[in-house]
Design a protein around this nucleic acid. Structure first.
Length: 183
DNA sequence: TGCACGATGAAC
DNA sequence: TTCATCGTGCAC
C-alpha cells in the first residue's frame, strides 16, 4: 500500500472526499495494524458551511480544523462516541472530510458502519486529535489494486439544523457496498 | 457559572 | 420515538 502524501489533502474538499472512497485507513498499535476500507464519507466545506463545526469560528475545539491539511480532527459526540475527520485544503480554510463507514480488512472487531462505530472498531479517540496522517502509526493509504466503483451522492446525516446546507449533496458512498451506514 | 444541544447508536 | 452521556459554545 502507498501512504497518501500531504498534497492529496491540500485540494478541493469534495474532490478529496470522492477520492478517499476505496482508500485504506490504517492504525498501527504494537506489532499489528487495524485496517479498514473507506466506503462512506461526508464533506464539510468551511466556516460558511453552517453544518461544519468551523462555522463557530476558531475555538479550542475547531483549532485542528483550521490547521494544515492531512491531520486528524477527532471529537466526542453525544458524550459517548468519537468522530474522525481528515483536514483538507490550505491552513485556515477549516474544511474536513468525516469518515462515516469502513469495510473491515484487517484486525477489526465489531461493526464499522457509522462514524461512532468506525472509531470504536479502530480504537480512535481524542488522543489522536491533531495527529499528523503522514505519521507511520496512523495514516491513509491506497491499495495496491484499487477496485472500480461508482459514487452515490446524498444529503449529509444529522445536520437538519443547517438550513439549505442540510440539503446539499455532500455525503458520498460506494454504490452497492454492504458496509454503508444508511441507504 | 450554568445550560441547551449535538456530524450517534441502540432499544422500544 | 426515546434515551444514554458529556464537551462545547454561548447566554447570563
Amino acid at each position: 500500500m502507498r501512504k497518501l502524501a500531504r498534497d492529496f489533502y491540500d485540494r478541493d474538499t469534495v474532490e478529496v472526499a470522492h477520492e478517499l472512497l476505496g482508500k485504506a485507513l490504517v492504525r498501527v498499535s504494537g506489532d499489528s495494524a487495524r485496517i479498514g476500507r473507506i466506503v462512506e464519507v461526508e464533506a464539510y466545506l468551511g466556516p460558511h458551511d453552517r453544518a461544519a463545526h468551523s462555522s463557530k469560528g476558531l475555538t479550542a475545539r475547531t483549532r485542528v480544523m483550521y490547521g494544515p491539511p492531512g491531520h486528524a480532527y477527532v471529537y466526542l459526540i453525544y458524550g459517548m462516541y468519537h468522530c474522525m475527520n481528515v483536514v483538507t485544503q490550505a491552513e485556515g480554510q477549516a474544511s474536513a472530510v468525516l469518515l462515516r463507514a469502513l469495510e473491515p480488512v484487517s484486525n477489526l472487531q465489531g461493526r464499522t458502519q457509522g462514524p461512532g462505530l468506525l472509531c470504536r472498531a479502530m480504537h480512535i479517540d481524542r488522543q489522536l486529535n491533531g495527529h499528523d496522517l503522514s505519521s507511520d502509526d496512523f495514516y491513509i493509504a491506497e491499495f495496491a489494486t484499487p477496485a472500480r466503483f461508482s459514487i452515490v451522492k446524498r444529503p449529509r446525516i444529522g445536520v437538519g439544523y443547517a438550513g439549505l446546507w442540510a440539503r446539499r449533496l455532500l455525503r458520498f458512498y460506494i454504490r452497492g457496498n454492504a458496509f454503508v451506514s444508511r441507504r
